[in-house]
């Protein structure tokens, strides 16, 4: 009881802080300096129509590399922890129900129909990341959800872990190689001007941004898939 009271007291303090922030908040009328720089210069600097993409891939590209690294570490830790040998003596749960589990005709047919389309949509999202909303992270998540659909339609399916980790590491290495190429050929690490900027608004424009975002998409998709496959598989190891 006293614990609940302390928690409520803490939250009341936090709530007071939030009320203070809310009362002092006035919506901006103009962009601040950083944002207006991005708005004015992103076309001539990067050639990308989507300014969020320009910020993520080019202006703050190093941060994105760090973010992808964090995701890689997460996927590694999840599989490291969950594939440890089970302590002897504990019963293996979920073996009996595995036999009885069948996903039904509807889900199986729907999966066969939808998985190619979902994969295609994921690729579309990250290839067009510099023109339309979306990009590597969203496309990667959509790729992973295609894999999730396969996993739902056949829970006993085994995925090729080696393939997933190959895709992940190759795209990661290529990402860093493109970054270093930017250092050598253009202005700095992950500079997208190593390829011609092209005509604004077309698919093959914005220099290396589509290439980088495709690599990010593959890498993120492989990482999410690896997390999900590990979490669902080790139940009936």
């Amino acid at each position: 009881m006293i614990k609940k009271f302390v928690a409520l007291l803490l939250l009341a303090g936090l709530g007071l802080m939030f009320v203070g922030l809310l009362l002092g908040f006035t919506p901006d009328q103009v962009l601040n300096t950083t944002a207006s720089y991005y708005a004015d210069h992103s076309v001539e600097d990067t050639g990308a129509a989507n300014i969020v993409t320009a910020v993520i891939v080019t202006y703050r590209g190093l941060d994105t590399l760090g973010e992808v690294t964090v995701l890689f570490l997460t996927a590694t830790i999840v599989s490291l922890i969950l594939t440890q040998p089970r302590p002897s003596g504990t019963p293996i749960i979920g073996v009996a129900e595995k036999k009885a589990l069948s996903s039904g005709e509807l889900l199986q047919t729907g999966t066969r129909l939808l998985v190619p389309l979902v994969l295609l949509f994921g690729v579309y999202v990250f290839v067009n990341g510099h023109l339309t909303p979306g990009g590597g992270f969203q496309g990667g998540a959509i790729l992973a959800s295609a894999l999730l659909l396969l996993l739902l339609s056949d829970p006993t399916k085994r995925f090729n872990h080696r393939l997933i980790s190959r895709v992940e590491s190759i795209s990661g290495i290529l990402y860093v190689v493109i970054g270093v190429l930017g250092l050598v050929l253009a202005g700095g690490f992950l500079d997208n001007r190593i390829l011609p900027l092209g005509a604004f608004g077309t698919l093959f424009s914005a220099g290396a941004i589509p290439v980088i975002y495709t690599l990010i998409g593959l890498k993120v998709g492989a990482e999410f898939s690896s997390m999900m496959v590990t979490l669902s598989e080790s139940r009936d190891r």
Partner: peptide, 17 residues
């Protein structure tokens, strides 16, 4: 952009995890 990310990751993959 954020809406797509939240729909795909926040409400899709997290729930299944």
């Amino acid at each position: 952009d954020v809406a797509m990310t939240e729909a795909a990751i926040g409400s899709g993959l997290t729930t299944f995890l």
